[in-house]
Structure formats: C-alpha cells, structure tokens
Design a protein around this nucleic acid. Structure first.
Lengths: 143, 143
DNA sequence: CTGTTCGATGAAATTAAATTTCAATTTCGG
DNA sequence: CCGAAATTGAAATTTAATTTCATCGAACAG
C-alpha cells in the first residue's frame, strides 16, 4: 500500500519534470504513516522531529503535490481548516463528526456511493468527487 | 414563509435580550429575498444599495445571528469561503456543483436523508446537521 | 567526474478572509 | 423622556493560506 503510493508519486514527479528530493520522500513517508487527518502544520511538527532542517513551506507544498497526484485529499470539517487524508489505495469514505468532542469516524457505505452516482447522473453530471460530513453528538458526549 | 422567518428572528432576539434594529430588519429582509448562496460581503453590497449607511460588519454579525436562530446556514463549497443559504422553512437539501462553471444545483433526496440517519444511529450518534456536496462536470461543460 | 541549468528549498513577507475592538450611537423598559 | 445596556461602523487585528526571493541541490550533458 505504501509502496504503491510511492510509485504513484514517483511517476507523477517524473511526468511533471519535478525532482525526487530527500524532503519530498521523507514528507510522503511520514504522511503515509499517519492515520489521522492532519493540517500541514501538524504534519510539519512530526516531520521536523526526523529532520530539523525541513521547513513548513516544503511540507505545505509537498502536500499540494500529493493532492495533485491523487495520493492525498483535502478535507474540511466545517472549521475552514484544511486537513489532509489518504486517498490513494483507500476506498472513498465519509465522515461522522462529534460536535462536542471532535472525534471523527470514517464511514464506508456503498449504498450512499451508489445513490450519489445516480443523483449526479439524473442531473447530467459526471461525478468527480464528493464529500459528506455528518455532524452530531456521540454516545459518550450525549450522557 | 418570509413572515415565519421574521417571527422566528424576533423571538430569538427577545429570548436573548437583543434588540430589533432597523439594520437587522433590513438585512434579514434582503437575505430572505435572495435565492443564491451569498457571502457576507456580497449581501453587504446588496444591502448597501438600500441603505448606504449600513456597514459590512453589521451584515456579518447579523448573518451570524441568523445562523444561531436557525434561519440561515453556513455552506462551504470547497473554496473555504463561507456562504449563507436559507435554512428556516426549507427542507434540507444537498448540493451538486459543477467544477468547471461553478453552477450549483440544490438536491432534495429523502433516500439520502434516511440513509444518513441510519448510519448515524448505527454509530450511536444523534444527528444534528450534515452537508453533502457532489463535485462533477455538468452536461454543458462536458461537451 | 564536473560544470551548468533549472527546479527545490526555507525564511520571511504577503494575501485574503474572518473576527474583534472601541468610541459613538441607538434602542427600549421604566 | 431618561438612562442603562446593546448596537453600530470603521478600522485594526487575527488566522490560515499562499507567494516571494535569494540560495541550494539534483540531474544531465559533456
């Protein structure tokens, strides 16, 4: 899975005549290892522990490249802060977010996906992407 | 429908010991008349034509009040710009957005709503709100 | 190898939008 | 009407995203 993402990234870089640098490799590896939704600053904090010389701008720009190469996806849980999640080699999922404790649960539901496709088709749209976020209160917080 | 929204707003204001001012009334009326998704700046431009003395801060703040009183809803179509749409007296709808011409279509689909409820229930969540945006290319742009 | 070119990098500056501040003004209950 | 408390508008601030620019480094030709 990680190997696949690395291969995709390499291909993307060479297609665009971009260079495979030490920084980009380290940032991609670090990104692949995290399973949470991180902002570019949060990823920068982790990357910095492995290589103090890497700047936050590079992390920011590399994440943009990961999005362009379909390895990452930008998500926004309603607070207008951009977070990144894995896209490559994962099936699409939606999010269930607790408005109280901010816990997020990833949902995979093929019925939803099918419905979305059929709605788009009904209006003559070719569906490219979508996001669905459900906001509520989780069991723990409801007590 | 507009009367209903105005009554809701009045009630909200008095409940919170806030005052019913000329500006708030005009902003609410103007908001109710627009059927598009506007930013606070865009709404300000329209309101200004009716009363030059109103400031954009007041429009911004009044929109926040409309959200609190459930008359309006904030939406974000992926560009991190907050737009406002009617919520009171409308059933919930989702959005289909053309990534090319930016056209947005409002979708009402009870099957989706039901599925969302049942997913939330499955994970022990009480659903409060949700947003679903489908991004694609419309018929016209596809040619 | 090694020089050269062009993309990459990092710190700092800039942009863009949201939000807050504050002095002056307005509302509304008494 | 009066006065306390909320509101207003302009301007300032905050916050996150994005760009700039002076080096630096990768990779390729020779």
């Amino acid at each position: 899975m990680q190997k696949q993402a690395k291969a995709v990234f390499e291909q993307y870089l060479s297609k665009k005549n971009l260079k495979a640098t030490h920084q980009r490799n380290l940032i991609l590896e670090t990104f692949l290892k995290t399973e949470k939704h991180l902002t570019h600053e949060e990823l920068y904090e982790i990357v910095k522990k492995k290589d103090k010389s890497i700047g936050q701008t590079t992390v920011y720009r590399t994440l943009k490249l990961l999005v362009e190469s379909d390895i990452a996806r930008e998500v926004d849980f309603g607070d207008r802060i951009v977070r990144y999640e894995h896209k490559c080699c994962h099936i699409h999922h939606d999010h269930l977010i607790c408005m109280h404790c901010k816990k997020t649960i990833e949902i995979v539901d093929s019925q939803i996906e099918e419905l979305q496709e059929s709605i788009a088709a009904k209006y003559g749209f070719v569906l490219v992407d979508h996001n669905m976020s459900l906001y509520g209160i989780c069991n723990d917080c409801f007590k």
